[in-house]
């Protein structure tokens, strides 16, 4: 990486009249204006579409709003936030969610990268293989949950039939005995295609010359992957890691849809204890107990956990993510 010249004066520049600024500083100001113009669609959208609901949602978490009638709303301060720390269900749910994340995210990331490398080879039928890996991702989550419910069905499912091929009939009730295994498989299977495509886009952005040059220098395929491909791919790995963590911690409908029993999503559905995830708990507190205030506080706490994890990742990323330009 080349040294990037730092615009040390940029912040001060904005405070001064333009006429008095030295030419190189004016360049900094112009660059700043360009930046703000470029991001203006998002900035305007954020202020108009996100900021107001965010403020409303935060105020809700400081109240005892029950979703029914604004007439009785009271401000309760931080009570809802403190309550979460004495709620055994919230703690159980957070534990299960973090466990699921710890299993699913690393495994997903490795699988997505491996799939991208596999279908990026010069082999036949790449288009077919890519489509197969990508397909689960395009199935909407409601249908994907049905797919797995039927796949692991004790009597009519393929999984038990395949496991039973070797010997005696297998009659495992997956959704009752191993609900988290099914949830993890559904999540990994469903997300693989999305991550793979992002990796693929990244891989194809790496100039072939880099790898060819290394091969000529006598490096084998593994070494090229380790020393050329992975470092150049690190911003994309980072992207998939962060978005994977965010998505996994917010999982809500999958455990509800995988709950044993009827296909469908209704507020009365309660997933098995093992799949009682954090967002599920918040959902039930909001829509079953009508505790919109407390449920919102739970979700803001989840936001805090996600944010903290992401910030830690950003700090460490300086050591292992390599950008073409310093971000």
């Amino acid at each position: 990486m080349e040294g990037v010249h730092r615009m040390t004066g940029a912040a001060q520049v904005l405070d001064r009249p333009v006429a008095r600024v030295a030419p190189w500083r004016r360049r900094g100001l112009r660059r700043a204006v360009t930046f703000y113009l470029l991001i203006s669609p998002w900035l305007i959208g954020f202020v108009l579409l996100a900021a107001i609901p965010l403020v409303m949602a935060f105020l809700m978490s400081l109240s005892n709003y029950d979703g029914l009638n604004l007439e009785y709303v009271q401000f309760v301060g931080l009570e809802n936030y403190l309550r979460a720390f004495t709620d055994p269900d919230a703690q159980h749910a957070l534990g299960r969610t973090l466990l699921l994340m710890a299993v699913v995210v690393p495994f997903s990331l490795a699988l997505q990268l491996a799939l991208a490398l596999l279908v990026n080879q010069r082999i036949r039928f790449t288009s077919l293989f890519r489509t197969i890996f990508y397909l689960p991702y395009v199935i909407p989550v409601v249908a994907a949950a049905w797919v797995w419910k039927i796949f692991v069905d004790p009597t009519g499912g393929l999984l038990n039939a395949l496991l039973g091929v070797a010997g005696a009939a297998v009659n495992v009730r997956w959704l009752v005995e191993y609900p988290t295994v099914v949830l993890a498989l559904l999540t990994i299977w469903g997300a693989a295609g999305g991550g793979m495509v992002v990796f693929l886009a990244g891989l194809q952005g790496i100039p072939a010359e880099y790898r060819e040059a290394a091969m000529i220098d006598g490096a084998n395929r593994l070494q090229v992957t380790r020393h050329i491909t992975l470092p150049l791919l690190s911003p994309v790995i980072f992207f998939n890691l962060v978005t994977g963590i965010i998505a996994t911690l917010q999982i809500l409908v999958q455990p509800m849809l995988l709950a044993p029993g009827i296909l469908g999503l209704s507020p009365g559905t309660v997933p098995p204890r093992d799949n009682y995830l954090y967002a599920v708990h918040a959902y039930l507190e909001i829509f079953v107990k009508q505790l919109f205030g407390y449920g919102s506080a739970l979700l803001w706490l989840l936001f805090g956990v996600v944010l903290a994890l992401t910030l830690v990742l950003f700090k460490t990323s300086r050591r292992w993510v390599f950008y073409g330009i310093e971000p």
Binding site: P267, G268, V270, P272, R273, Y276, L284, V288, K289, Q290
Partner: peptide, 21 residues
Amino acid sequence: LSEQAFSTSWVKNLEPALKGS
């Protein structure tokens, strides 16, 4: 109480009870 408060609590606790936990 909301309509489903009791039944949801029932189902939530029935699973661990039947599993013996």
